[in-house]
Amino acid sequence: MTTLPSHTERKLGLVIDLDTCVGCHACVVSCKGWNTENYGAPLSDQDPYGAEPSGTFLNRVHSYEVQPASGAAQLVHFPKSCLHCDNAPCVTVCPTGASYKRQEDGIVLVNEDACIGCGLCAWACPYGAREMDMAAKVMKKCTLCVDRIYNVNLPEEDRVPACVRTCPSNARHFGDLADPNSDVSQLVAARGGMDLMPEQGTAPVNKYLPPRIKDRLDRAEEIDILAPFLEPVTDQPKGFLGWLDKALDRF
């Protein structure tokens, strides 16, 4: 049924730390690796070794340059996957009931056997979280590794989404965001976790932790107590450069 549940008992989701993400794309690779051989149709590639490779990914890492009004620009790596919205617009537009949001844990899934591949859910998603697989002709999206997190055949430490398990900089956290005492909820509260595109009214479950200010080249003198020893000893060039400087001055 493509009507949304009035509430979900839990809100399983991700907290992504933009401060510690190093942009290594390990989450992209592990996501593709796990999900191409488990839940649903494989994540196909088209022309993978050709001139215009393209493929289906459930998680992609963008990189942005942010220029403050003064001071140095920051580079922010920005992983983006399905945000498992409370008010998921992708679910209600589905004409077949293939898209649904689970009442028990809030995960948004696609029943690929009922998907007609109309692509309307991808249009409805403001985050670009859904991609049509060009080989299977069905809509693919992040399942929050639903086939890992409840999988008793896996060791307990592996019962988290593949992206979370693999992240080498601990920038991805998985948990229940409906429980105010969960680790992820406390992290969100402590670090000012935010919604993407709040004006779209999607009420995303996944939260992003804003990056702290990093490079402070504008405060270079505060960097180190040894900095004064690295001061340039002369502002007058010597040798060939000194001669060139004087020669050019005479013109």
């Binding site: 963008h62 942010v66 922010v76 595109m197």
Partner: peptide
């Protein structure tokens, strides 16, 4: 608003994912 990075400064797409 899309990146949530607006409060820090002007946002520019630096590198696409692929």
């Amino acid at each position: 608003s899309a990146t949530g990075l607006g409060p820090i400064g002007q946002v520019r797409a630096f590198e696409p994912p692929h």
